[in-house]
Amino acid sequence: MTWTIYLSGEIHTDWREQIEAGAKQAGLPVQFSAPVTHHEASDDVGVAILGAEPNKFWHDHKGAQINAIRTRTLLGKADIVVVRFGEKYKQWNAAFDAGYAAALGKPLIILHQDEHAHALKEVDAAALAVAKTPDQVVSILRYVINGDLSGYTEALDAAQ
């Protein structure tokens, strides 16, 4: 089986590429999908295709609706959804994707740093795992897909 992993959230760092490279290095049978991560294309798709809007609300609304076609379709096809919350911006769209994935019953992995733990407590509560690094996400995928916990025997021994 090839697992489909949807990577949602923050677009200003290379976390997606790190997860994809780690999964490839681990030889995981996965394919990745994501929203459009080119900021301007995502923001302006509605007016670029359907025509200009003098009101910024309708400009954004058109783009959000077209982007939702992609997001809803790919989230619906995903076996696992990973949502990253970055340090610099508030990602309301990421929170929406996490809620949508939870409502669909998709296994959800949340990725963020400790400073966001309070703000994301409800999102974290809906997740099956909360990670801090892309490497942790790859390790979770490796375990879930292959049942492989090799390399973690020291941590297991310390926990016992």
Score class of each variant (00 low, 15 high):
Ala95Ile: 10
Leu149Arg: 05
Ala159Gly: 03
Thr13Tyr: 05
Ser150Gln: 14
Asp97Lys: 03
Trp3Ser: 02
Ser150Val: 11
Asp14Glu: 12
Asp97Cys: 05
Ser139Arg: 08
Thr37Tyr: 06
Ala95Ser: 12
Ser8Gly: 15
Ser150Glu: 14
Leu74Asn: 09
Gly76Val: 05
Asn67Ala: 15
Thr133Leu: 07
Ala78Leu: 08
Val83Asp: 01
Glu53His: 01
Ala26Phe: 04
Asp14Pro: 07
Ala155Gln: 13
Ala155Glu: 14
His38Val: 11
Asp114Val: 01
Ser150Gly: 14
Ile66Ala: 12
Gln91Met: 08
Asp60His: 10
Leu111Lys: 01
Ala129Arg: 03
Thr73Gly: 06
Asp44Ala: 09
Asp43Tyr: 04
Trp3Val: 10
Gln25Trp: 04
Leu128Lys: 06
Ala26Cys: 10
Ala126Leu: 15
Leu28Asp: 13
Ile66Val: 15
Asp114Glu: 15
Trp3Pro: 00
Gly46Lys: 07
Ala119Cys: 07
Glu154Pro: 00
Ile80Arg: 06
Lys56Met: 13
Thr2Phe: 02
Ala102Glu: 12
Val82Arg: 00
Glu122Tyr: 10
Ala64Gly: 08
Ala21Thr: 08
Gln113Ala: 10
Lys24Val: 02
Ala117Lys: 11
Ile11Met: 09
Val123Ala: 14
Val30Cys: 11
Thr37Trp: 03
Gln18Asp: 09
Leu75Val: 14
Val130Glu: 02
Ala94Pro: 01
Asp97Glu: 15
Glu17Met: 12
Trp58Gln: 13
Leu156Trp: 05
Trp92Ser: 11
Gln65Ile: 14
Arg16Thr: 11
His112Tyr: 06
Gly22Glu: 07
Leu111Gln: 05
Tyr143Asp: 13
Phe57Met: 08
Ala98Cys: 09
Asn67Val: 06
Ala127Glu: 04
His118Phe: 11
Gln25Ala: 15
Thr13Trp: 02
Gly51Ala: 10
Glu53Gly: 04
Ala26Tyr: 01
Glu53Ser: 11
Glu115Cys: 05
Ser42Thr: 02
Leu50Arg: 09
